[in-house]
């Protein structure tokens, strides 16, 4: 049986990092600082993956999100550079509605989780994850998930070509 009760100090540290920097991402005025806090937040999520025995996913998170996607965001922010000045207001008029909607969402999900945990209706795993994660993931990618793997690579190729075509513009 997997241990359920305690999550330990690293979980609390990482979740504080993730939530605080995530809140900074959506609330700061300067969009460039938001991108830097997004890097913090995604690195914290990678730490959460390590706690959940998903080492390969943590490495992929650091490589793809922190290394590629955030760099792409920062490039786009710099290319649209007149948007980063502090005078421009970054939020629109429905901030209060959105705040209350998200609070209702959070409270309802937490209440649902609390009730279902108290009643004990979750199906709990009776065994641990396999020890050698990366080996099993590689074998699954070549056997059971080979069709989604190929499809997702075609999607990535199509997105790359589409981005080039879109960003090249009319004149070339």
């Amino acid at each position: 049986m997997v241990e359920q009760a305690s999550v330990g100090v690293p979980f609390w540290i990482l979740s504080v990092i993730v939530l605080v920097s995530g809140f900074m991402v959506v609330s700061l005025k300067n969009i460039f600082h938001c991108a830097l806090f997004l890097i913090f937040c995604l690195t914290g999520v990678a730490g959460i993956f390590v706690l959940l025995n998903a080492e390969f996913l943590a490495a992929a998170q650091v490589l793809i999100y922190v290394g590629a996607v955030c760099t792409l965001m920062i490039f786009a922010i710099m290319l649209t550079s007149n948007m980063t000045s502090k005078k421009i207001i970054q939020t629109n008029h429905n901030a209060m509605v959105a705040f209350f909607g998200c609070m209702i969402f959070t409270v309802s999900v937490v209440a649902m989780l609390w009730i279902t945990t108290r009643d004990g209706i979750w199906h709990m795993a009776t065994e641990l994850l396999p020890e050698n994660n990366v080996l099993v993931i590689g074998q699954l990618l070549m056997t059971k998930f080979v069709v989604p793997f190929e499809v997702v690579s075609i999607v990535l190729l199509a997105a790359m070509i589409g981005a080039i075509v879109l960003a090249r513009g009319e004149k070339a």
Binding site: F23, V26, Q90, T91, N92, N94, A98
Partner: peptide
């Protein structure tokens, strides 16, 4: 929920 708040409120 934080992400949803950001999607709704960002300009």
């Amino acid at each position: 929920a934080i992400g949803l708040f950001g999607v709704i409120t960002r300009r």
